[in-house]
Computed example of a mutant assay.
Amino acid sequence: MNLMLDDCDTWAVVGLSGNPGRTAYRIARLLQERGKRIVPIHPNAPTVLGEQGYASLADVPFPVEVVDVFRRSESAGEFADQAVAIGAKGVWFQLGVIDEDAFRRTTEQGVAMVMDACPAIEWGRRRG
C-alpha cells in the first residue's frame, strides 16, 4: 500500500466519469492534489479533471503504475488482469470491492494489490 501511495505517480482510475458527485471523481481529485497524474478509464473516454480519458487500459499510450478500480466486485477482477497485462506496479480495489481470486492471480504475478481500501482514508491514517 505504501509503495503505491508514496512511489507511484500515474494512476488509472477505472470507472471515472465527469460526475463530481461520484466517489471516483472525488478520489481522482484527491490523487491530483497529492501530485499524482490520473488517467480516466471509462467506455466513453471522457476528459476528466483536465486529463484525457481512455476506453480501456490497453488504449493508454504511456505507462500506468497503479490501476484504481471503482467497479462492482463481480466485474473488478478483469481490470486486475488487465493491469497485470499492461505492466502496472499495483492494483487498488476501492472500499467494498473484493475479489479474492483476482487478488491471488495478481499477487502471484508479482503485482502489489490492495482490496477494500480507500487512498483518502489511508493517507488520513498516516497523519497520526
Rank of each mutant, 00 (worst) to 15 (best):
M1L: 07
N2H: 03
D6L: 01
D6S: 03
D7S: 08
D9T: 02
W11R: 01
W11D: 01
A12T: 00
A12P: 00
L16A: 01
S17T: 03
G18R: 00
N19C: 01
P20W: 01
A24W: 04
I27V: 15
A28E: 03
A28S: 04
A28K: 02
A28P: 01
R29W: 03
L30Q: 04
L31M: 09
G35K: 02
K36R: 05
V39M: 10
P40V: 10
H42I: 11
H42G: 07
P43I: 11
A45Q: 07
T47N: 10
E51W: 04
E51G: 05
Q52V: 15
A55G: 10
A55S: 14
A55F: 03
S56A: 13
S56N: 11
L57I: 08
F62K: 11
F62N: 09
F62H: 15
E65F: 06
V66R: 07
V67D: 06
D68N: 14
D68Y: 10
D68W: 09
F70L: 13
A76P: 11
D81T: 15
D81S: 14
D81C: 09
Q82W: 03
V84E: 07
I86T: 08
I86S: 03
A88D: 12
K89P: 02
K89A: 13
K89F: 06
G90I: 10
W92T: 08
Q94V: 09
G96D: 10
V97P: 05
V97I: 15
I98R: 15
D99M: 14
E100A: 13
D101H: 12
D101K: 15
F103Q: 11
F103I: 04
R104H: 13
R105E: 14
T107K: 13
T107R: 14
E108S: 15
Q109L: 12
Q109P: 14
A112E: 07
M115K: 05
A117I: 02
P119M: 04
P119K: 03
A120H: 06
A120P: 04
I121L: 12
E122D: 09
E122G: 03
E122W: 08
G124M: 07
R125K: 13
R126W: 02
G128L: 06
